[in-house]
Simulated assay, not measured.
Amino acid sequence: MKFLIAAALLGALSVSSAMCASLEAPKGAVILTITGDIQNTNAANTATFDLAMLQALAGRQAIMDTPWTDGATEFDGPYLQSVLQAVGAHGKILRIKALNDYSADVPMADATDYETILALKMNGKSMSVRDKGPLFMIYPFDKNHELYNEKYFSRSVWQIKEIEVVD
C-alpha cells in the first residue's frame, strides 16, 4: 500500500514538473520579455525571447492597410497566441509595454479570438526601433474589418519590449 501511495505521489510530481517546463535560453539579443502568470520560464521567473525563438513559432504574413502606414503594408511575425502558449500563460489581461513606457491592457481574448501577430518584419524587412520595431502588435485588420477602430488602434502597441500576463 505504501508503495502505491509513493508511486502516485511520484507520478503527480512528474506531471506537475512537466507542466512547468523551461524554455530554451535565448542565444541572441533578448527582444521580448514575458512576466506574470506564466508557467514556462528561462530566466528568474520570466520568459525571454530572441529573434530566432520568435521566428520559430507559428505565425502569419499579412498585407493590410493600417492607420500608421501608407497604403497596403506587409507584416510578418508569430501569432500572439503562439508566444503565450510557449510560456504557458494563464491570465485575463496582457499588459503590453513599449520601449518608451507606453502600455496598453489587452484582453487575453484578443490573442485567442483573432489572428493577432507580433510583427517582426514590415514589407519584408526587420523593423528597427525607428520603424516601430523590434515588435509591433498587429490585429488582423485584413480579415476582421470591424477591428479597424480606435479601440483596437490603441491596443496596437509598437516598440514592444515586455508583456505582463495579469490574472
Results as ranks from 00 to 15, higher is better:
Pro67Leu: 02
Phe75Gly: 05
Asp65Lys: 14
Thr69Ala: 05
Phe75Ile: 09
Gln85His: 12
Pro78Gly: 06
Ser82Glu: 03
Ala86Asp: 10
Asn100Tyr: 06
Ala109Lys: 14
Ala111Glu: 01
Thr69Leu: 00
Asn100Arg: 11
Ala111Cys: 07
Lys97Ser: 15
Lys121Asn: 14
Asp101Pro: 11
Asp65Trp: 00
Leu118Arg: 02
Ala119Cys: 04
Gly88Lys: 01
Val87Trp: 01
Val87Thr: 04
Thr112Arg: 05
Asp101Trp: 05
Val87Asp: 02
Ala72Cys: 01
Thr66Cys: 03
Asp101Tyr: 13
Ala89Thr: 05
Ile63Pro: 00
Ala72Glu: 13
Ala119Tyr: 11
Tyr114His: 12
Ile93Arg: 05
Pro67Ile: 14
Asp101Cys: 13
Ile93Gln: 08
Pro107Tyr: 04
Lys125Trp: 10
Asn100Cys: 09
Ala89Val: 10
Phe75Thr: 11
Glu74Gly: 06
Ala89Asp: 01
Leu80Lys: 03
Tyr79Leu: 08
Tyr102Gln: 08
Leu99Ile: 13
Ala86Ser: 15
Gln81Pro: 01
Gly71Asp: 11
Ala111Gly: 04
Ala119Trp: 10
Glu74Met: 12
Tyr102Leu: 13
Asn123Ser: 09
Ala72Phe: 01
Glu74Arg: 13
Pro107Ala: 11
Leu84Met: 14
Asp70Met: 09
Gly71Cys: 09
Ile117Trp: 05
Thr69Tyr: 08
Met108Leu: 08
Gln81Trp: 05
Leu99Glu: 09
Asp76Phe: 04
Ile93Gly: 06
Gly88Asp: 02
Asn123Arg: 08
Gln81Ala: 11
Asp65Cys: 01
Asp76Ile: 00
Ala89Glu: 01
Ala104Val: 05
Thr66Arg: 04
Asp110Gln: 06
Thr116Gly: 10
Val106Phe: 03
Thr112Phe: 07
Gln85Met: 07
Tyr114Arg: 02
Leu99Phe: 11
Leu99Ser: 12
Met64Val: 03
Gly88Asn: 04
Gln81Ser: 14
Tyr102Asp: 10
Arg95Leu: 11
Ile117Tyr: 03
Ile63Gly: 13
Ile96Trp: 00
Ala119Ile: 03
Met108Ala: 07
Arg95Tyr: 06
Pro78Arg: 03
Pro67Asp: 05
Tyr79Phe: 14
Asp76Ala: 12
Asp101Arg: 12
Pro78His: 02
Ala86Gln: 15
Asp101Thr: 15
Asn100Pro: 07
Leu94Pro: 06
Asn123His: 03
Val87Lys: 01
Ile93Ser: 12
Ile117Asp: 02
Asp113Arg: 13
Asp76Asn: 15
Lys92Tyr: 05
Ile117Ser: 07
Ala111Thr: 04
Ala119Ser: 06
Lys125Thr: 14
Thr73Ser: 06
Asp105Ile: 09
Pro78Val: 12
Asp70Ile: 13
Gly91Leu: 03
Leu99Lys: 12
Met108Asp: 07
Thr66Phe: 00
Tyr79Thr: 03
Thr73Glu: 08
Gly88Leu: 07
Met64Trp: 00
Gly71Pro: 09
Leu99Trp: 04
Gln85Tyr: 11
